[in-house]
Design a protein around this nucleic acid. Structure first.
Length: 616
DNA sequence: TGTAAAAACT
């Protein structure tokens, strides 16, 4: 009697992994033991007789001179080969054997794919999800090889079947959930070659995670590919892609897509409006809150009721615009509309007030929260600690940290970074370094901001040695410098007049794949102006615009300062007009310069009263 | 089964 089919036969333990089960050649077992038949196995599994299964597996492994892990794999194959046993039994057995015989070498991708197909055929989707999750997390296989193996493991008649499409959908979902977005993208594009029809089930989460990772080009590409492949988008798809455009600062395109979605039969929802309003609030620049207000009116006209998130978003926008009094007005308005402010509302306001130095009002709101039984969280305290730090009131900041811990809350990396930055600003570098050590002892790792605060502090001190030491430490700990670190270093070099080195660092940001910001360029432009090298400053502005950053108010202020400082009022006026033509609105710095120099000399009319809340 | 809001560093 043939006990095992040829392709079931266990291969000798010594055979290398390169050869698969089916190709094993000369397994000689003259006294073959009785192999388990599928129904016995299935029965044992469904009764969870694991110890009996273990005995069977050990016996089988001994008889075929192989490892128990490999024997378990062949048992799984028997279960899957049998038409009468359910996929649930195979799944249970697979899970048990995976946890019992931890052996990555025994991980057989084709076999696992057959299990997935069996689960899909039985529509056991939640089991399928967790299996895919496991496969994606633990498997040494690339995502595309999983996709490919699934395709070839399916019976030819079912290769174009919906269940394969569902598997591809769920594979993408599993990859996204495991933060393997690039692999998910690859599967998204390759699934077309296999003829799978994906759905919003995987596409929407993929789009969301691309936004989280700020891969905005990919968001647009995936969206366009969805339309091309006739994967029907839904309301969430539109809201997500609109959010992508907003986060990228492309508000025009976000607005266009809001129009487009109507032709697909979707009306903008409260989330659509909230997303757009937040886009304007975060965009920065003059008149942004005006645009946000216009959207608010539009949504009300469209009979979409603003909710708590709408108000929180507007309140934050006004706070970031340095206009906490308008923020407070919206706070009152939301109460009037019987929307209850939540922890986020209070945190937003407390942060806004703290940033403006209005600490008493911030503390008042903290009290109000507690009276309303809204539990302040670590974000609340961080905002207040930041307020104290900005005023160099380090004892009070530290005290607030104690209050936080007294409430059984744990300081997080932001709490520590805030305090470290406070100590640095107050010139207390030793205290800052003590805190750096303390946070590690409390189980909070340093991040790139921890280092930028400290490096900034030591740069201000002119303590180059300590700066270099911190940069070395970052390299050791694999903390990659971000653009803020570069900006800090560039600023320090500029202050020392080392402009060649500063420009070299700018070049380096591009080499390491970082995007220079306005701050990066403006710092260098300012340094050239300070040196009296207008030509180099103008060249740097040209470079900045080639790099996709348009001159902003700060850039113009730098040039206006240069000309005002030299009494060249015509040129200063020229730059002022240019900035106005570009739709940039002068801020307080501009105002102070032109007030001192240009208005008094009659070059420009007084604009008193036109600059209210443009502090920056 | 997926979409919107808050805290640190230039």
């Amino acid at each position: 009697m043939r006990l095992f089919h040829r392709h079931h036969r266990l291969r000798p333990a010594k055979t290398t992994r390169a050869t698969s089960f089916s190709s094993s050649s000369s397994t000689t077992c003259t006294t073959s033991p009785t192999p388990p038949d599928p129904s016995t196995l299935s029965h044992l599994v469904s009764r969870q007789h694991w110890s009996r299964l273990k005995t069977l597996i050990s016996a089988s492994a001994a008889a075929f001179a192989t490892t128990p892990a490999d024997a378990a794999v062949s048992f799984l194959r028997i279960l899957l080969d049998s038409a009468s046993t359910s996929s649930v039994a195979a799944l249970r057995f697979s899970r048990w054997s995976q946890s019992h015989y931890r052996c990555p070498r025994a991980f057989d991708l084709p076999l696992h794919c057959r299990l997935l197909l069996a689960l899909a055929a039985d529509k056991l989707y939640s089991d399928l999800r967790s299996e895919l999750h496991y496969l994606v997390r633990s498997g040494p296989h690339s995502a595309v090889s999983i996709l490919h193996t699934l395709a070839v493991s399916a019976e030819p008649s079912r290769r174009r079947h919906d269940s394969l499409s569902i598997l591809a959908d769920m594979l993408i979902l599993a990859l996204v959930k495991n933060s393997r977005t690039s692999a998910a993208i690859e599967v998204f594009y390759r699934s077309r070659d296999f003829g799978y029809r994906l759905s919003v089930l995987s596409c929407n989460p993929l789009l969301s995670s691309l936004i989280r990772e700020e891969k905005f080009d990919a968001v647009e590409a995936v969206y366009k590919e969805m339309i091309r492949r006739r994967i029907p988008p839904n309301l969430i798809t539109f809201n997500t892609v609109i959010n992508g455009f907003c986060k990228e600062g492309k508000l025009r395109r976000a607005g266009d897509l809001t129009e487009d979605m109507k032709s697909w039969g979707f009306s903008p929802s409260v989330i659509t409006y909230n997303t757009l309003i937040d886009g304007y609030c975060k965009k920065g620049g003059a008149g942004k809150m005006y645009r946000a207000d216009v959207l608010l009116k539009q949504m009300v006209d469209a009979n979409i009721h603003p909710n708590v998130v709408t108000f929180n978003t507007l309140i934050d926008g006004y706070c970031k615009d340095g206009n906490s009094s308008s923020a407070m007005r919206f706070f009152q308005e939301m109460k009037r509309q019987e929307l209850s402010p939540g922890v986020v509302t209070y945190n937003t306001l407390i942060n806004g007030l703290s940033c403006e130095g209005k600490l008493n009002e911030a503390l008042e709101l903290l009290k109000e929260m507690e009276e309303l039984n809204l539990a302040p969280n670590v974000v609340t305290y961080n905002a207040i600690i930041n307020g104290f730090c900005k005023k160099k009131m380090m004892a009070e900041a530290k005290g607030m940290c104690d209050v936080l811990m007294g409430k059984n809350l744990l300081p997080n990396v932001i709490t520590y970074n805030t305090l470290i930055d406070g100590y640095c600003r107050a010139g207390m570098m030793e205290d800052a370094m003590v805190l750096k050590r303390l946070m590690l002892e409390n189980g909070i790792s340093h991040n790139v901001s921890t280092f930028s605060c400290l490096i900034n502090g030591f740069c201000k001190d002119g303590d180059t040695k300590s700066v270099v030491k911190l940069l070395d430490e970052m390299r050791e700990k694999n903390v990659r410098p971000d653009i803020v670190i570069y900006n800090v270093l560039i600023r320090a070099l500029c202050k020392e007049g080392e402009l060649t080195k500063a420009v070299k660092l700018l070049d380096e940001t591009l080499e390491v794949g970082l995007k220079p910001t306005h701050v990066t360029y403006n710092t260098i432009i300012d340094a050239f102006c300070v040196k009296g090298n207008l030509r180099a400053a103008l060249n740097m502005r040209a470079r900045m615009e080639r790099g996709g950053k348009r001159a902003n108010v700060v850039t113009y202020n730098v040039f206006i300062k240069y000309f005002c400082g030299r009494g060249k009022m015509e040129e200063a006026n020229e730059f002022l007009n240019e900035m106005l033509e570009k739709g940039l609105v002068p801020n307080r710095v501009t105002y102070n310069m032109i007030k001192d120099e240009m208005i008094e000399r009659g070059y420009v009319p007084s604009i008193d009263g036109h600059l209210c809340n443009n502090a920056s």
